[in-house]
Design a binder for these strands. Structure first.
Lengths: 341, 341
DNA sequence: CTGAAAGCGCTTACAG
DNA sequence: CTGAAAGCGCTTACAG
């Protein structure tokens, strides 16, 4: 077989496999696609032939014949600098990539960095280039869904804006409750003047976490006015912390809407000679890899980002397989207590 | 036309375009592929038909017929946490994505996060699923090239390890000279005890920058012994800085092998009450977006990461188009002086 | 359980 | 400059 393999200039086709196994093309195809109605002997023979010939099905031919592309798009409608700078997104992406890697789908990447490129992306998605789309963003809205017009299954990472009757599929956490529980930890450990560096007011994750903070404080009869908006970024956290210090110098705790925000805040606190957690407790949100490694290990609300990515991919695959899939998957969160609070 | 479009359940094919334009399928195909031998009138008619029908060529059919996939793979053989945590990589990726977005190629993503998945990646790349591969890594070696066996064009981001007669294509900067010039700036501003937090000893970028540091110090007759190895990460920078402070408490400057490393180092310096740049000057490498935004804006050696990504993609496209392409593209660097040094 | 045959939607020599 | 025809490598009813 070996010399045979070396002689052939072109890759083996299904035809080659079939004749090597002594069956028809149809049967070989059935084996490859795992059809249940094939005799064990034949299955054996075909698999042997495949191994011997080192056969890999031609994606294009298969796709043309069965009208599926075998590709799933990952769409990133965020500012890419921010996207890549946020460990939450990397983790989600990793989860997606893992699942797809173990499936027969390939992952196609669409960074919609420019405004005009988003039209191009829509065109690409509608053009039958992929079987489904995964949209990872903090603020993707329904307009994308509308623009897609149901042309293909879409799964969002994070509840899309204006999720009403849109029937969108998404995976998320209960940001409100997660934040509430995190802040409750602050309260339980005796903090009374708890500030919040919120996320953007136009993103569900930002709004919901702010709401959770408020709920916890209200529940404890504490003042919920010490709030400043950040943008989930590190530098935004620094700026917000400076503002907070100026406006509410009496604060004894800060709940940052993201770990990145918390890091920025902590660097300002350190620069101001304020000790964490002695003077000010700091609570983050994410439990990114850096949280545990920080100088002062960060107490934070963990959301299972990698799992969320895995789930997104799995939902898409299930949808494509025609399985029943719930529209929303809400993952568990957990308050991870370390040194900062 | 409109009602016609709404009635048809299935997407228009080349056949539809051809008949709408009153030409044969062959001719329509020629127009679409920009063949020079078509009469202007016909070109017009076909384009009109395309617009009217909102025609998008079927990728699979085209690929099957012309034996090209129209896809380029982005392979990331790095620990993904690190990959996404490093702004250099995001920038490269962005550049790649931009160019491909404007081309007819789609970007396919292969995160080779697990050891075993790398075999799968190789299989995928060899299996005719993509036309070319872009490998972005700090330490990709020739074994990948060997494993690929010349099955498809490959362009590396960063000089691959053991780049001898391998004939690899890559884009990079002259790390040695860039580092040398950066350190020279430190020397020119009067620093005399200049330490270095190096990158890993098994990565070209780490080794070359270390060499550049050494060259500059040697050239000035300064001592080149204050060195500790980091890993390009922020936490690695912190750890290395602590070590440096312990072993060489007299240092008056630090050249960090990456901006991330510099940030980690600066946080330790701040924590130790050491002022930057007054007590210790800090020089980074990258000029990542965060460099300018840092509390103490970072003086650093800029490498044009986005452009490097663009170049990688362009090289691959040129290679696929059969154009002559130099094996290496070395991009310019620049010492960006800000506050930290 | 298996095979012959049609068909997926393009591209590309080959003639003219 | 243009068309008829073959072919790319699969999948999938349709028979048997």
């Amino acid at each position: 077989m070996a010399p045979d393999r070396m002689v052939r200039a072109t890759a083996p086709t299904l035809e080659d496999v079939a004749s090597a196994a002594g069956v028809s093309r149809s049967t070989a195809s059935r084996v490859i696609n795992g059809s249940p109605h094939v005799s064990p002997t034949v299955v054996r023979a075909v698999h042997d032939a495949i191994d011997r010939l080192d056969y890999v099905p031609n994606r294009a031919a298969r796709s043309l014949a069965n009208r599926r592309t075998g590709a799933i798009a990952l769409v990133v409608p965020e500012d890419t600098t921010r996207f890549f700078g946020d460990p939450y997104f990397s983790a989600v992406m990793r989860g997606i990539s893992e699942v797809l890697h173990d499936s027969d789908y390939v992952l196609t990447l669409q960074l919609a960095h420019e405004i005009e490129s988003s039209a191009k992306t829509i065109r690409y998605l509608r053009g039958g280039n992929v079987d489904a789309a995964l949209i990872v963003s903090h603020h993707a809205g329904d307009h994308i869904l509308d623009a897609l017009g149901g042309a293909l299954p879409v799964v969002f990472g994070g509840r899309p804006i204006a999720d009403g009757d849109s029937g969108a599929y998404y995976v998320d956490v209960d940001n409100t409750d997660a934040a509430r529980r995190g802040v409750q930890h602050l309260i339980d450990s005796g903090r009374e003047r708890i500030a919040h560096i919120a996320g953007p007011a136009d993103m569900p994750a930002g709004v919901d976490r702010l709401e959770g903070w408020r709920l916890a404080l209200d529940g404890a009869g504490l003042d919920a006015t010490r709030v400043v908006h950040g943008d989930f970024s590190r530098s935004g956290g620094s700026a917000a912390m400076r503002l907070l210090l100026e406006r509410f110098p009496d604060l004894d705790a800060v709940f940052a809407a993201s770990d990145l925000t918390a890091f920025g805040a902590m660097s300002v606190l350190a620069g101001s000679g304020i000790r964490v957690p002695r003077d000010v407790a700091v609570l983050g949100f994410d439990d990114s890899p850096a949280a545990a490694e920080h100088d002062v290990p960060l107490t934070t609300v963990r959301q299972p980002a990698v799992d969320m990515g895995r789930r997104m991919a799995t939902m898409a695959i299930d949808l494509l397989a025609g399985r029943e899939v719930p529209h929303r998957a809400i993952m568990d969160t957990e308050v991870v207590v370390r040194a900062s609070a």
